[in-house]
Write a protein that binds this DNA or RNA. Structure first.
Lengths: 238, 238
DNA sequence: GCTTGATCTTAACAGTGTTCAGATTAAGTG
DNA sequence: CACTTAATCTGAACACTGTTAAGATCAAGC
C-alpha cells in the first residue's frame, strides 16, 4: 500500500519480501506477480526490470531462503557442539533446525525445496548439504563415525532429515506438538548414525550420488570448459 | 486430437490421462485445463461437469497416482519376501519401488507428493504408509525388529525413503545411474533398521506423529461425529 | 541547467480459470 | 416407433494472469 513509486536499488529486495509474505499467506502458487507489485506500490512491468520473469523472482526467493536455512543449521550445530557433550549433538541440532523450519514455515519451505535446483547461477553458502558434510567430517575426526562409512553418508543423513521436513511441510505427516519434531528428528538421525557406524560391507557402490549444489560449484571453480556436461546436468536418468 | 465429443462416462478418466501426460511433458504447473480439454477434443467447460475446478482435477490425479505407487510397493514387497531370504528384503524392496518411481517419473511424483494431502474425501488403498506399517509388523513378528522400537518406526522408515525420493524428484540430488538408486535406498533403510533395533531408551515420546491418510480413515470409520476436529486437521502447529 | 542512464508507467496482447444459458446427445418410457 | 428426460457438451463472456513495447519520470553528475 506504500505509494512511493521509486525504490532506488531496493525494489528487488522489496519485491522479494512481498513475494515471501504472499507465499506464506497464499501458498506457493496462490499469488501473482501483479499482486506483489501492487503491494509494493509499483506497476507490474516495473518488476521486469529486476527479474526476467515470475519464475526468476521465485528462484531468487528460493535462493535467499535456502541460504537462511543453511545459516540456521550451521549456527545451531555450532551452538550445540560444546566440550564434553555428545558428539552427535551437532548434526542432530542441524537436523532439528532443518525440520523445525519446514514445520514453522511450510509454504516457504515447499517453495525452497521445489525450486532450489533451478537457478544455475546463484551460489548458496552455506548450503544445507555443506553443513551436513562438515558435521559428518567432525564425527569421523572424533572417531564417532567409522571412516569407511563416511563416503556417501551425507546423502543418507540428508535424505532422512529432508524426508521428515517435506512430509511435514506437505501435510502428509502430522505431529501432536512442536516438540515432537525434535524427538522424531533426533530418533531418526541417531538411528541412521548408529546404523552407518555398524555397516559390515564397505558400501560397494562408492560415490554414486552428487548434490546438484556441489555440482554447480565444482563446475564453476574447476574446468571452465565442461567436456561432459551430460554427467552434470540434472536430467532424467531412467 | 480425437474429435469425438461425447465420452460417455469416460471423460473423467480421459481427462485424467491427458493431465498425467501433460504433467510428464511440462511439469506440475506447465499446462492448463484448457489444453487438457483440447487434447481430449472437448470444450474447456466440459471438464467442469466432472471436476469442480482445476485443483480438483489435480487432486484426483494425485489420488490415482498415489494408489498406483502403493500397489507397486506392496507387490514389490510381496515378491521379495521368500522363504529363507533376509527378512529386511521386503521393506527394502518397497523402498526401492518408492524411490525408483520418483526417479523415473519425477514430475508426476512431485505432483503426487505436493497434492497428496489435500483431497479429504478420496481413499487411497494401499497407501504407501500402510505398506510400510505392514512390513514393519512382519519384521517384529519374525523377531528382526525389537518390539519396543516398533511404535513410530513407520515414520522413520517413511521419512528415509521419502527424503531420497523427493531429493531425486526435485533434482537436488543426482545419481550416476539407475542402479545407484537401489544401492542408496538399501544402504539407508538398512542403517535405519539396525539403528532402530539397537535403541537403548524406549523412545520417550510415544505416538507423537500421525499420517494424514490414517487420520482420515479413522475419522471416517470411527466416531462419525468428530468431537475434536482440531486434532485431526492438518493445520500449522506453533 | 541540462544531459544521461536508470527506473517506472501506460496500454496492449494472448492465454488462463471459471460461470452460465442454451444446444446436443444417449437412453429409457409409453 | 415417437417422446420425454437426464446427462453431457458448447459458446460466449468475465475478470485475471504473465509478458512486452514505447514512452514518461526521476536522481544525479557535468
Amino acid at each position: 500500500m506504500s505509494k512511493r513509486q521509486y525504490h532506488h536499488g531496493e525494489l528487488r529486495n522489496t519485491l522479494l519480501d512481498a513475494a515471501e509474505v504472499l507465499v506464506r499467506e497464499n501458498g506457493v502458487v496462490g499469488w501473482s506477480l501483479r499482486e506483489a507489485s501492487a503491494r509494493v506500490g509499483v506497476s507490474p512491468s516495473a518488476a521486469y526490470h529486476h527479474f526476467t520473469s515470475r519464475d526468476a523472482l521465485v528462484n531468487a526467493l528460493s535462493v535467499r531462503v535456502l541460504a537462511r536455512l543453511g545459516e540456521r543449521m550451521s549456527s545451531a550445530a555450532a551452538q550445540a557442539a560444546g566440550p564434553g557433550v555428545d558428539t552427535q549433538q551437532g548434526i542432530i541440532a542441524a537436523g532439528c533446525a532443518y525440520v523445525r523450519w519446514a514445520l514453522e514455515d511450510p509454504a516457504v519451505a515447499r517453495l525452497a525445496f521445489g525450486f532450489g535446483a533451478q537457478d544455475s547461477e546463484a551460489m548458496i553458502a552455506p548450503h544445507p548439504h555443506d553443513v551436513i558434510e562438515a558435521e559428518l567430517d567432525r564425527l569421523v575426526a572424533t572417531g564417532a563415525l567409522n571412516a569407511t562409512a563416511r563416503p556417501g553418508a551425507e546423502f543418507a543423513i540428508w535424505a532422512a532429515m529432508h524426508g521428515l521436513a517435506t512430509l511435514l511441510a506437505d501435510g502428509l505427516m502430522i505431529l501432536d506438538g512442536p516438540e515432537a519434531a525434535d524427538l522424531q528428528t533426533e530418533r531418526l538421525l541417531r538411528a541412521v548414525l548408529t546404523g552407518l557406524t555398524q555397516e559390515t560391507a564397505p558400501s560397494q557402490g562408492r560415490p554414486t550420488a552428487h548434490s546438484a549444489h556441489t555440482e554447480r560449484r565444482t563446475r564453476r571453480q574447476g574446468n571452465s570448459t565442461p567436456d561432459e556436461p551430460s554427467a552434470t546436468a540434472p536430467t532424467r536418468l531412467q
